[in-house]
Design a protein around this nucleic acid. Structure first.
Lengths: 198, 198
DNA sequence: GTCTATATTTTGATAGAC
DNA sequence: GTCTATCAAAATATAGAC
C-alpha cells in the first residue's frame, strides 16, 4: 500500500464524515438511516460497514470527533488569537451564524444530546460543550471578569444560542436567532452593575 | 351507547394521550415506535389504530393538542391571575421546574420542532410557543413594559428555558437549568437601564 | 474498497375473530 | 374496543464476488 493511497483513503473517509455531519444534524440519530447515509456519501452500505464496522453508532461517534476538531480549528480559533475581546467574540459569532445558517440548521450537539441516543454520546457531547464554554470563558477572564462569572456567562452564551435555534425553528422565523446573536458579544462583556445603582 | 361509556372512552383516550406525552418527549418522533407506544399505553397496536386511524402522526398531533390544553390550564393559568407580576412569574417557574424535572426531562416542543418530523407539526408547535410567549408578555405589559420589549423578553424567557434544558442534558448536570430558572422572574422584570448610566 | 445479493429484525399498518 | 395473526416495507447488518 503506497503512501498516496493512504492519504487518499483518509481524505475520502474525512470527506464522508463531513457529509454525515449534515445528515445527523438534520434528521437526528434515530431519523438517520443507512439509506440516507449511503445517499449522502455516495457509498454503498457494505463500503460504509467496511469503514465503520460499528455501524451507525460508530459513524455518529466519528462525526462527533470530527465536529470536535472543527470546533477547535474553526470556531474557537478566533477566540484564542490576539486582539480585543469584543472583536474575538464577534469573529466567533460570524462563524456561528454561518454554521447554523441563521438558526435554520439544527445543532448536532443538541440532536445527539436529546432522545434515547443521548446515553451513547454523553461523554463526547459533554466534552465538546465544555471546550466551547471554556474557550469563551477564557476570553471573559482576559477581559477581567472573575473566573466563576466568566464560566457562568459562557454557559449563558451556549444556552442562548441553543435556545434561539429551537425558537427559530419552532416559530419558523430567523428573527430570534439574529437578535440573540447580535447582542451576544456586548451582553457577555457587559460590566457588572454595582448593587448600589439599583 | 350509554353516556357513561362515552365518558369512560374519553377518559381512557385522554389517559393514553397523557402517557404518550412522555414517550414522544423522551424518544422524539422518529425514536418513538408503535411497540413503545403499545407498551406505554398498555394497548395493542390494533386498539391504537382504532383510536388513531392516522397512526403515529395522529398520535403526535393529539399529544400536541393535549399539551396545548395543559399549557393553558396549568402552566399559563397562574400568569393570568391577579397578583404581583413577580409572584405570577414565580408560580409559572414552579410549574416549569416540575414539568421539566429540573431540566432532566426533554421538551416535547423542542423534540418535535427539530428533525425531519418538524414539517408535519410546524403549525401546532408554532401556535403553542406563541401562546406561551404572549402569556408572559401580557404580564410584562401589565408591569409597564412597552409591548415590543415585553414580547422580546418573553421570547428570551423561552430561549433561556430551552437552551438550559439542552445544556443540562448535554453536561449531565441540572445546575444550569436551576440557575437560569431562579434568575428568570427578576431578569424579566429588570428595569431598563437608562443609557446615560453607561 | 466497493459492489450485488441476501439475511434478519423491526417498523408501521391491516384483517378479521371475539 | 380489544385481541391475535399477519402483511409489506424499511431498517440494520452480513456474505462473498470482483
Amino acid at each position: 500500500m503506497s503512501i498516496d493511497s493512504v492519504h487518499m483513503n483518509v481524505m475520502l473517509k474525512t470527506e464522508a464524515i463531513a457529509r454525515l455531519v449534515d445528515v445527523f444534524r438534520q434528521y437526528g440519530y434515530d431519523g438517520t438511516s443507512m439509506a440516507k447515509i449511503a445517499e449522502a456519501t455516495g457509498l454503498g452500505k457494505s463500503s460504509l460497514y467496511h469503514h465503520f464496522p460499528g455501524g451507525k453508532e460508530e459513524m455518529a461517534t466519528a462525526v462527533l470527533d470530527y465536529l470536535s476538531q472543527c470546533l477547535n480549528t474553526g470556531l474557537l480559533a478566533p477566540l484564542q488569537q490576539s486582539g480585543e475581546p469584543l472583536d474575538r467574540l464577534r469573529a466567533m459569532n460570524r462563524n456561528i451564524d454561518q454554521y447554523y445558517n441563521h438558526g435554520q440548521k439544527a445543532c448536532l450537539l443538541a440532536m445527539l444530546a436529546m432522545g434515547e441516543s443521548s446515553d451513547r454520546f454523553r461523554t463526547q457531547v459533554s466534552h465538546i460543550l465544555n471546550s466551547w464554554i471554556e474557550a469563551i470563558a477564557e476570553v471573559l477572564i482576559e477581559a477581567d471578569f472573575e473566573p466563576e462569572l466568566a464560566r457562568q456567562r459562557a454557559e449563558d452564551a451556549i444556552i442562548q444560542i441553543q435556545g434561539a435555534i429551537i425558537l427559530t425553528q419552532g416559530l419558523s422565523t430567523t428573527a430570534p436567532f439574529k437578535r440573540i446573536l447580535n447582542h451576544l458579544p456586548e451582553t457577555l462583556l457587559q460590566p457588572v452593575i454595582p448593587s448600589g445603582l439599583l
